[in-house]
């Protein structure tokens, strides 16, 4: 399958296969007016299979979200069909207002104004916990 190269915009490459749609939703790409392509299960020498997202305009990508969903992903900035910058993501120490705590006993479930905050508690397992109730973040990775 072939999708045209973009002129000016962003390519999020090396997304773990199956995580593309989740990343699309969490980055809020559904709200963009420009063309956005999600390529699922593209062949990859390094990963076997990968997902790719191509965004046909410049968009301020939240690297914390990319790293949280798929730490191996790279964010490439494209200008005049040339990759001018490759941003490697790193697992963030803190996730602020990116995911919500699912524990029905957590204070954040009743007081909506409170900042949703998670801290990285286990880098190896990529495990985050709610700072208020210590509940582990649920992610479909």
């Amino acid at each position: 399958m072939k999708i045209d190269a973009i002129k000016n915009g962003i390519v999020i490459d090396h997304i773990a296969a199956g995580c593309g749609m989740q990343l699309y939703n969490m980055l809020g790409l559904d709200k963009l007016d420009c063309s956005v392509a999600i390529i699922k299960n593209a062949p990859s020498l390094k990963m076997g299979k990968k997902d790719i997202i191509k965004i046909d305009s410049h968009f301020d990508v939240n690297l914390d979200i990319v790293s949280f969903v798929s730490p191996e992903a790279t964010v490439n900035i494209i200008e005049n069909e040339v990759c001018v910058e490759k941003r490697k993501t790193e697992l963030p120490e803190r996730l602020v207002n990116i995911i919500k705590c699912k524990n029905p006993r957590c204070i954040t479930t009743v007081e909506q104004e409170i900042t949703q905050e998670f801290v990285l508690t286990d880098r190896k397992k990529r495990e985050y916990r709610c700072i208020y109730c210590d509940t582990k973040a649920e992610v479909n990775r």
Binding site: N103, R105, C106, I107, V110, C130, I131, Y132, T135
Partner: peptide, 10 residues
């Protein structure tokens, strides 16, 4: 004291 977890941190 609060019934919701994390309220004292808030």
């Amino acid at each position: 004291r609060h019934p919701k977890e994390g309220a004292p941190l808030v």
